[in-house]
Simulated scan of single mutants.
Amino acid sequence: MSIPAYDFTHKTGLITGATGGIGRDVARLLFDAGANLVLLDLDPGSLNALAVELGDDARVAALAGDASSPEIIDGALALTTARFGALDFVVPAAGIYPESPVTETSDELWRKVMDINLDGVFRLLRAATPVMADGGAIVNFASLAGHRGSKNHAHYAASKAGVIALTRSLAHELGHRGIRVNAVSPGTISTPMVEALVAERGESMLSGTPLNRFGNSMEVAQVAAFLCSDGASFINGETIHVNGGLFMAG
């Protein structure tokens, strides 16, 4: 992998959903640019494999658990301060994308999607911002669905619309500390989470994408890493689309 154009030496980032397609590549980019990392994910096996891949125990700490759980969040923040003493970047990348028409969506499923995709982000940022270093950065993950809606994924679309509003609200609240809060809004990215969608509607989605291809997780992660960097020092409260022009195409 080529060396990034930014330098995160002596900076610390907390990433949830760290072993997902996008979260993993965010971790790789921040680590390669010198950052210390605290990785949080539900799957301990995948989490350990990522930590081994990165290969520097002095700069990587990992915690397995539910990223929407207040207890796990508190544990991750305690681990961060104990190991590295400061927190500069927070990247909540945990999320789920179950398919369900509105009329077949149970209260339990609706609540589960909201709990992981929106409530968990809120809980994490509520707990993390008091201990974050001034001048830090938060990068949330929204989705094209949060802007346009999504057939059979109303719960997901609603949760991601909430992330967009939360991002803007926190940008207002934290700007006086120099903490920038932005979001990345991916379109169709080739990750396991959207395999079923691509199999069902991939051809029609490509026909409406000016670049005529799906994105990959590294293309999204590069935008997230940029938003953490000094290169984005005056970008705040924004949602950056990464979708090959699909949103523009309508």
Rank of each mutant, 00 (worst) to 15 (best):
T16N: 04
F89K: 04
I73P: 11
A18L: 02
L166H: 01
P210W: 03
T188P: 00
L144Y: 13
T209G: 10
H147C: 00
L227D: 05
T12C: 13
D107C: 05
L174H: 05
D57F: 00
A18D: 06
I22V: 15
M114D: 01
P92G: 04
V223Y: 01
R24W: 00
E219A: 09
A183D: 08
S204E: 15
D74A: 15
D66E: 11
A142D: 02
P101I: 09
A171C: 10
A183N: 05
D107H: 13
A171D: 05
R201V: 11
A224M: 01
T167M: 05
P101R: 07
T19G: 06
L47A: 08
M248W: 01
G237H: 11
F89E: 05
E203M: 00
G75C: 11
G215I: 01
L125I: 11
V52T: 15
A225P: 10
E104R: 14
N152Q: 14
S143E: 11
T105M: 13
E195N: 12
R24P: 00
A224T: 08
V38M: 13
L166D: 07
A86H: 13
T167N: 05
L206R: 14
Y156T: 07
S190N: 08
G20D: 03
L246V: 03
N48T: 14
M205F: 11
A232Q: 04
E99V: 03
G178E: 00
R123Q: 06
V102K: 01
F226S: 03
V242G: 06
D230H: 04
A18C: 01
D41V: 02
L50S: 11
P70D: 14
A158Y: 08
R83I: 04
F234S: 11
H172D: 09
G178L: 09
T81F: 04
L118G: 02
G34D: 13
V52P: 01
G34C: 10
A33T: 06
H241L: 13
K151D: 04
G85Y: 03
I240Q: 02
S169T: 15
K112N: 12
T209V: 11
V52E: 15
N216L: 01
M132K: 12
A93M: 15
L144C: 03
G149E: 07
L40I: 15
A93S: 15
V131L: 14
M193N: 04
G244V: 06
R59A: 13
N152K: 11
R126D: 09
T239C: 08
A78F: 00
L40R: 01
L47V: 07
P130F: 02
A161H: 05
Q222A: 15
M1G: 14
R59Y: 09
M114N: 13
V38Y: 08
A5K: 07
I3E: 14
T167I: 05
A127G: 05
S100G: 06
A183V: 06
R28V: 08
L39A: 08
N216P: 00
G208R: 15
M205R: 12
G202R: 05
A94N: 03
N36T: 07
A58C: 02
